[in-house]
Amino acid sequence: MNNFSQKNKLNKENLLKLLIEKSYKKGNFTLASGKKSAHYLNCKPVSLNGTGLKLISNLFLELMDPSSKAVAGLTLGADPLVSGLIVTAASQGLLIDALIIRKEIKEYGTKAGLEGPILKEGTEVTVLEDVVTTAGSAIKAINKLRENNLLVKEVLSIVDRREGGYEALKEQNIQLKSLFSIEDFL
């Protein structure tokens, strides 16, 4: 697994407790991928909580490749993750930019698909995700970033459901780094 600092090992334990309490449900669910599952994880109750977002942001910052100069993710799930990470980084004197990727390009104004600063071509960007199942959302984000001549080498997720996402990203030459897997919730 990941070699976190002693402080972040405790953060990870506390985050798992929060996720189990606020984000995990057992039952019969249809996931965004269309797959059926007995396990459902909605990380928003934790990522939209100050304590939860602080834990996630600290862990993601330690997990993120230091050569990455920006973070990005698809709106809505990644919005708090992206914002939390850049604020946490700034509090430590690290300058990391952020991009929010629209699911649909807006039909007015600049018709932008990416919101945030304009990054230099070839800038390395880390994609943030809450839950990875098949990696469909992450791949959409990666493709949009690549269309804008940005470099993506990794995706950080809170949870990997281990349902093909890791393999799908590997085919794209992208490394998936997750704080937890579905096994941590069983």
Rank of each mutant, 00 (worst) to 15 (best):
S68D: 11
K69I: 01
K69H: 00
A70F: 01
A70V: 07
V71G: 03
V71D: 00
A72V: 03
G73V: 02
G73A: 03
L74H: 01
L74W: 01
L74R: 00
L74A: 02
L74T: 00
T75L: 15
L76E: 07
L76Q: 08
L76H: 04
G77A: 04
G77L: 01
G77P: 04
A78E: 07
A78I: 06
D79M: 12
D79V: 13
D79F: 14
P80H: 05
P80M: 01
P80Q: 00
P80T: 04
P80W: 02
P80A: 01
L81Q: 05
L81N: 06
L81Y: 06
L81I: 12
L81P: 12
L81D: 02
V82H: 02
V82A: 04
V82D: 01
S83L: 02
S83Y: 00
G84A: 07
L85A: 06
I86R: 03
I86S: 04
V87G: 05
V87F: 12
V87I: 15
T88I: 08
T88N: 12
A89E: 10
A90P: 06
A90N: 14
A90T: 07
A90M: 15
A90F: 13
S91N: 12
S91L: 14
Q92A: 07
G93V: 15
G93I: 13
L94F: 09
L94Q: 15
D97Q: 07
D97H: 14
A98C: 14
A98G: 15
A98D: 07
A98H: 11
L99M: 08
L99W: 12
I100F: 15
I100D: 06
I101E: 10
I101C: 08
R102T: 09
R102E: 07
R102G: 07
K103Y: 03
K103N: 13
K103R: 15
E104Y: 03
E104C: 07
E104K: 14
I105L: 04
I105N: 12
